[in-house]
Amino acid sequence: MTRLSSVLRGAIMPVLVVIIWEILSRAGVFSAAFLPSPLAVAARWVQAMQPLQPFNPSESSYLVWLVSGEFPHDAAASLSRVLSGFAIGAGLALPLGLLMGTSQRIYTLMNPLVQILRPIPPIAYIPLAIVWFGLGNAPALFLIALGSFFPVLVNTIAGVRQVDSIYLRAARNLGASSMTIFRRVILPASSPFILAGARIGIGTAFIVVIVAEMIAVSDGLGYRILEAREYLWSDKIIAGMLTIGALGLLIDTFASRLNDYLLRWHRGIGT
């Protein structure tokens, strides 16, 4: 009951904003190109979510058909770019971070370079990315990988360096070799930091993917809303933005659930 009432109370403001927005649109305060009505946005969204062709069992399975609409297709394209770009960026950052965290020599060698490159926003690499990779998926993946690289790197280094030496002493006392200590002590002990870095990294990747799609490719949600601007379809722009928000929420919720599951030892039972 209290849960229901808190949900209702939370809905007051969003519902009120939508109602006022609809009233103002109907009163003709804004033109449809400047700010379309919420109902127009909703209609566009439903339209863009629907499959383009009628269902034909001989061509595809029902599930594939269900997500064959414009927005589902774009969302899938954006998501796959985020995941592959993140995999590249994190895949490079993790081993380097582990090396820099465990070896003071490698840290001293690499850290100045990292500190110089890290403050450059990935978006600032766009011109260079196009010069290097041309147009298409390659520059987009490069930018996304770059966006997830530094958060994962920095957190991995910090994670390895904060491992309490008492765990290392206990492991050595029980006969563990350096390799075993690395694999079974340093890696899990730094995992809360590494996973926090991965969550920041995937968030950055999601920001970068939208920008990259506006420049280099011809599908994805970032491309779709920029395309809609060409035709002044403001209802489609806003519908696309809401879809981007929903996808971002989905990614972050998943990352957070995965974090909680992997780190259940860290948080304790039932928290």
Binding site: Y167, R169, A170, A171, H266
Partner: peptide, 16 residues
């Protein structure tokens, strides 16, 4: 070495 098992005041159990 494991022939000299150590018990620490801080337990030093692996929390994971």
């Amino acid at each position: 070495g494991p022939d000299r098992g150590m018990v620490f005041q801080e337990y030093a159990l692996f929390p994971w």
